[in-house]
Amino acid sequence: MESIENRLGLVSFTVDSEPHIKPKSEKCETCSLKICLFICPARLYREEDGKVYFNHEGCLECGTCRIACPEDLDWEYPKGGYGVHYQFG
């Protein structure tokens, strides 16, 4: 088995200090679906005490959360030159 963390370890990233995706915390707290927790292929959304946290460091930039989130997710691509560098895309 390769955990998602190990698999993300194989991908190279240039990480920006600012996240490019920001969950809207007040809306997440009342969201009953929390689709992001299971739909993100990199498992970057985590829930703690009812709050949703997003770790932008391993973002694969697919946009699945953008489509699936029932709320208006604050979603952007990383700045130019930042983010994931695929070599076998």
């Binding site: 194989l10 991908v11 695929y86």
Partner: peptide, 9 residues
């Protein structure tokens, strides 16, 4: 040997 993982829509 796994060398990359990726995702896309």
């Amino acid at each position: 040997s796994m060398i990359e993982y990726s995702a896309h829509l």
